[in-house]
């Protein structure tokens, strides 16, 4: 059941047993928490950056906003390469072919 992975090993059943242990520990900690809140009140509502409107949804464009914005300058350059023009697609094929020729002819 143990898969050798080069430097180490991987056994998912052992991992599941460990995960089960951690879950039990988490439940134990949780069970010792406060019990004085009242169900069905505002205390159960999620806090969405002060959003008051009911039914507010953090959509796909908003989650990890800062993370995505941080990456945007790098991605913008990559996006520029994805021009959608088939001429560019073929040009890249020619470039890679040239690199492959260089490697097999000069390197070989």
């Amino acid at each position: 059941m143990t898969l050798l992975t080069g430097h180490g090993f991987w056994n998912p059943l052992l991992w599941l047993a460990a995960a089960g242990g951690v879950t039990l520990l988490a439940l134990l900690v949780w069970s010792r928490g406060r019990r004085d809140y009242t169900r069905g009140t505002d205390g159960e509502l999620p806090f969405l950056s002060g959003e008051k409107a009911e039914g507010a949804h953090v959509g796909g464009g908003h989650l990890y906003w800062g993370f995505v914005e941080g990456l945007r300058p790098y991605v913008a350059r990559l996006r520029a390469l994805h021009s959608g023009l088939v001429n560019d697609y073929v040009a890249w094929l020619v470039v890679i072919l040239a690199v492959a020729f260089l490697i097999v002819l000069v390197g070989g």
Partner: peptide
């Protein structure tokens, strides 16, 4: 070697 480069280009694409 030329054939290898051509095969690399076509199959990688």
């Amino acid at each position: 070697r030329i054939a290898l480069a051509l095969l690399l280009g076509g199959l990688l694409m």
